[in-house]
Every structure is written in structure tokens, then in C-alpha cells.
Amino acid sequence: MRYPIPMTDKSQLRSDMRTRRKRLAGLDPQAAERAASHISALPTGDPVAIYRAIGSELDTDALALALIRQGRSLCLPVVTRRDAAMIFRRWSPGEPLELDQAGVPAPLPLAETLSPALILTPLLAFDLEGGRLGQGGGYYDRTFAALPDAIRIGFAYAGQQVDDLPVEGHDIRLHGVLTEVGYTAARKVF
């Protein structure tokens, strides 16, 4: 179900969407497993970058296992500098993690650095034009700019869809979004 959003400043929009995502997480604890069941609809590409969920972000555990069953290799993002694009290190479920410069669980420095063909990203809100509202740190937009050939896919609850997001010049659109109801390609031409 889509929700109209009032055009407010992004900080207020982020606050509102964090509240919405937290509510959605509480209402549907099985959403991540259902989303993972739709991975056959995802574009091809290997390796695949996923993320370790924080707070109410849609959990990626079932997604990671489903991707591995498809024969895809995984990597996780690593913030090495707060003002730079993220790097990606090879990772498999169960391997140890440490906090990166942004305080997010990431593979150890000994893990191989990879360039993902497909990047699954968390978000606060998305629209059908490929708009993505993130946490506001710019990590994913900087990374998308540095890896323009990577396919960018949001991983979210369907209830995070909004009618229209404000998109600024530095915002890089997604190619699609995977939710518990399926995969939807963005309508916007890139």
C-alpha cells in the first residue's frame, strides 16, 4: 500500500519514515523471508552486496541464504572514511564482523575486496521512479556514483513506498526495489 507524503524537509521526512518502518517491522516479522522468496525476479549479477540490518531495517539473513543457494557470492559494505565511497568485502553468513568507521558491522580487513555487480541497499522510503530516501549520510549515493555500472536495488517493506520523493542532484536513483510482495523495476529511465 502506497502512502502520500507531504513535501517537508528531508530531516522531518526521515523521522516520519523511521517511525513508519519501525511500525511495519513490528506488524510483519515474516516480511524478510517473503521478500527473499522473490529473488528469482532480481536482475542477474555477481557478486551481490547486501547489508547487515540495523534497527528496523528489513533483515537480510534469509536473503543471504537464498542468494547463496542461487550460487551467488556475497559482500558487505565497509565505511573506511566518512566522506568517501564505501568499499565491499567478501562475506558469508557466520563469518566474523567488526564495526566500521560508521559503526556498522562489516567484514574484517583480511577479507577480499570486491566490486559488486548488484547492490541491495536499505532505505527509509522509495518511490516507483527509483527515488530512495536513505539515512542522510550519503554513503550509498557516493558509492553508487563510484560504481555506476552496478545495479542498485532497494530492499524494503512494501509499506515504505511513497508517491513521490524529493530527489536532489546528488541523489542517485535505484533500478528497482525488492519487498515482501515482489520485485518492482523503477519506471524512471537512467
Score class of each variant (00 low, 15 high):
170 H>P: 02
65 L>F: 14
189 V>W: 14
67 L>A: 01
93 P>W: 10
134 G>N: 05
71 G>N: 12
163 D>M: 10
99 L>A: 14
178 L>S: 01
96 P>A: 10
160 Q>S: 09
88 F>Q: 02
168 E>H: 10
152 R>N: 05
175 H>G: 11
80 T>I: 15
110 L>I: 15
57 E>H: 06
159 G>C: 09
28 D>T: 10
95 E>H: 08
14 R>C: 11
66 A>Q: 11
31 A>F: 03
123 L>N: 01
77 P>Q: 01
165 L>S: 02
34 R>T: 04
17 M>C: 12
27 L>D: 11
110 L>T: 13
45 G>K: 03
172 I>M: 11
185 A>M: 15
35 A>F: 02
51 Y>V: 05
182 G>E: 09
1 M>K: 08
136 G>H: 03
9 D>V: 09
170 H>S: 14
75 C>V: 01
3 Y>G: 14
38 H>D: 13
148 P>Y: 09
177 V>G: 04
93 P>N: 08
100 D>W: 00
11 S>K: 10
162 V>P: 07
152 R>C: 05
43 P>Q: 05
92 S>F: 15
89 R>G: 00
133 L>Q: 04
133 L>R: 06
162 V>I: 11
58 L>P: 00
15 S>G: 13
159 G>H: 01
107 P>W: 05
105 P>F: 01
172 I>T: 03
143 T>R: 00
72 R>A: 11
82 R>D: 08
116 P>E: 02
80 T>Y: 11
19 T>F: 11
117 A>I: 15
129 E>K: 09
171 D>N: 09
67 L>W: 02
98 E>C: 13
117 A>G: 09
92 S>L: 14
79 V>Y: 00
135 Q>L: 07
130 G>E: 02
11 S>N: 07
73 S>A: 15
170 H>M: 14
98 E>N: 14
97 L>R: 08
81 R>H: 14
109 P>Y: 06
65 L>Q: 05
153 I>P: 00
187 R>F: 14
10 K>R: 12
17 M>K: 05
175 H>E: 12
184 T>G: 11
50 I>W: 04
119 I>H: 01
142 R>C: 03
89 R>H: 03
24 L>D: 07
